[in-house]
Design a protein around this nucleic acid. Structure first.
Lengths: 112, 112
DNA sequence: CGTGTAAGGAATTCTGACACG
DNA sequence: CGTGTAAGGAATTCTGACACG
């Protein structure tokens, strides 16, 4: 169920006009942030951009930062930093699980 | 978080063309099912229909039933039945919670 | 009943460019 | 750098209607 809802959040199905309404950004701004690699909408056969709810969240984040005068280059760096952070946290979590698994395996073998 | 994801599922932001791709139904069919009250898309200022992921699930359900030869009138009845069921289940749940609450209250008062 | 289709109009989206600062 | 705007074309969506069965 959670996995299911997650797929909704990431599904790229929203047109740029709707995104504009939802974020308050102009079409020009939204396209420009794509040019600066801040977002990556899906393109259908004829080149029409489609965004996900997650993209919308990112755009609202960008809007906030732009209002604070942060340049797109800086925003991009920040986003990459956060990505790194998430990755390293995931790595730590994986390591912990691996440790538990190993311990479990040792005990399990002892009993057999 | 779950509440958050739920809102994505119910947010009407998808155009009929995308819905058509996602469900495999033609525009004509999708509009017709609306005429038969099986779905109720949102209409923006200029009358363009917008659907939610939930609407898409309903449409896929409809597609299955139509393939089995079920008429739209029947499908509508089934949907209303399911709705009743959900409501009565919710009522039962509420009653149970109310009972627990009352019991809790009695004990609580006894202790005070 | 459920779906296809042609019809005409209105609004959307796309790209590349010039403008301003 | 970030955003506005006019330009021209292509595709979307809408409604009401006729068709078939």
């Amino acid at each position: 169920m959670e996995q299911q809802d997650r797929s909704y959040k990431d599904k790229k199905v929203i047109t740029i006009g709707t995104v504009s309404e939802l974020t308050g950004l102009t079409l020009r701004q939204i396209r420009y942030y794509e040019e600066r690699k801040l977002i990556a909408p899906y393109r259908n056969e004829r080149g029409t951009r489609k965004y996900s709810f997650n993209d919308i969240e990112i755009l609202m984040d960008i809007a906030d930062k732009r209002e604070d005068g942060v340049q797109t280059t800086e925003i991009l760096k920040e986003m990459r930093l956060k990505e790194k952070k998430r990755e390293s946290e995931a790595a730590v979590k994986k390591k912990m699980l691996q440790g538990q698994l190993n311990a479990q395996f040792r005990y399990g073998r002892g009993k057999i």
